[in-house]
Nucleic acid binder design. Sequence first.
DNA 1: CTTTTGGTTTAGGATCGCTACATGTTGGAT
DNA 2: ATCCAACATGTAGCGATCCTAAACCAAAAG
Lengths: 302, 302
Amino acid sequence: MLDLGRLRALHAVAQHGSVGAAATALGYTPSAVSQQIAKLERETRTTLLERRGRGVALTDAAHLLSATAGQVLALVEHAEVALEEQRGAAVGELRVGAFATAARGLLPATVVRLAERHPQLDVRLVELDPPDCLEAVARGELDLAVTHDWVNAPLAVPEPVSRTRLGEDVADVLLPSAHPLAERDAVEPEDLAGERWICQPEGTICHDWLVNTFRGAGMEPDLAYRIAEYETQLSLLAKGIGVALLPRLGRGALPDSVRAVPFRPTPTRRVFAVWRTQAGRRPAVTATLAALRDCWEQRETA
Amino acid sequence: MLDLGRLRALHAVAQHGSVGAAATALGYTPSAVSQQIAKLERETRTTLLERRGRGVALTDAAHLLSATAGQVLALVEHAEVALEEQRGAAVGELRVGAFATAARGLLPATVVRLAERHPQLDVRLVELDPPDCLEAVARGELDLAVTHDWVNAPLAVPEPVSRTRLGEDVADVLLPSAHPLAERDAVEPEDLAGERWICQPEGTICHDWLVNTFRGAGMEPDLAYRIAEYETQLSLLAKGIGVALLPRLGRGALPDSVRAVPFRPTPTRRVFAVWRTQAGRRPAVTATLAALRDCWEQRETA
DNA sequence: CTTTTGGTTTAGGATCGCTACATGTTGGAT
DNA sequence: ATCCAACATGTAGCGATCCTAAACCAAAAG
């Protein structure tokens, strides 16, 4: 493998026409340049310089080599500049995870905003449950994730992971419009005894919250429909065959056939962004955090 | 000015995925590679590697730098080749890969011939399966490789790789001399129903060919002995406990206790030499191709 | 001839870059 | 819970490298 310094020496001689001039240009003594080129000749087993009168002339091989050396040097210089530029710019691939609701209600806007601000950034999004999010981030499979917790199960982030709170997400009870309670200001567990619930599968926060709260009131909710998909839940609601507890985040506009009524006590979960602390210095990560916060604000004011 | 050696180290880490693998590929210790990259980081005032679990991950800057490093290395290699070409002599190190049979039956003669004709040439030989051969050549870890395909799985060479056909290799059935079919002119699958086969492991061409051909005739071969090593196969044959399908290339003289009988349909594979197209102008490569062709001829006439 | 200009060689000291070995983590196996 | 294997990094030291300085050589100019 040819040495870059020697190539530079040859190139300088080609450009400046003499060993001395090249040496001055490079800040060396002529001796150094002469030695470098002698080494290059030994390495390539080629004659590069020929004495011509008092000066030197380049052989064909030297011209050839000098030409590619010029390209190489330009490339390397370009790379150095690019590095400098890139320091502070958000570029590259960023793998983001988010729980389903956030993936629906928060991330699309964030991805669009990032694409506007940082066209060099390539955001990959994957929907993932909160515990998986955290693991994936810790393992480095994700660069950043949006996750949540709630009071009964606070989020414990492992050592090398940082987090920041984006805000709080409140869940309401969704009722068919024809339901007797549909126009109430708020409802409590006691009001909803005997209802058939549309609920996410076991292990999700909505499920746990519901079961917990009802048991706290000495009751057991009837979880008749275990549905993971948001649209499915909505169409069950629209048919009027059950009630549901659904977070505001990512809920969108409700059809006329469904009403949202606040629940007491208020089901609240805290939404976080998490990332490997080490990667926090990546401009791409800080830019995404900023975009997430912006989009969260915008959502709240809307 | 960035140092080429350090760029190469970074590029190797990017390609091989770990410091250790890169070190092996470059012929250094992991410590050396680690130090090189640490220096590169200091030079560029950039973080390039991040510890991730037991291994490392490249930062955005590192990916960027590695990409241009790849270009630079390609350019430099191109320049080296051009120089050598200009000189016209086959010299330097030439890393050659070959599948097992060729490594046994073709390469030894080739290496000897090359050593006679081009004493300056330093040939390194490594036995490698065909798919690995192709990859290694494409990645530049080998300068040239001898590989093969067969009709059911034609060889697809990636873009920057060239190939030339050396010839065809035919496989025969090997039978114990005492076998009733041992003196036949040819045998067919039907003749060999119920035989216990000595065969190479799954994934090898002999194995696939055998299974394919028998299934085409509505039968299933009984692959009783899965042996990779040629000598072991031969000694099993000599014991008379099975039959085998073995290519003529690299077979050598058979002991009296074993007979070779042609098979119908004839199992044929095409043997190729492959090399990076760019390196094809290296005299060392063309000289080796010539030597390979010569030795193949000689083998056929023998 | 001598001088001037320019390149090469040699000697020597600073630095570099490698290896060997020790250390620190992590993740899987017992 | 504990050990072990895999992997990366830190340290010390030795040999190679690369520079400068100074001597040396060769060609043109006076």
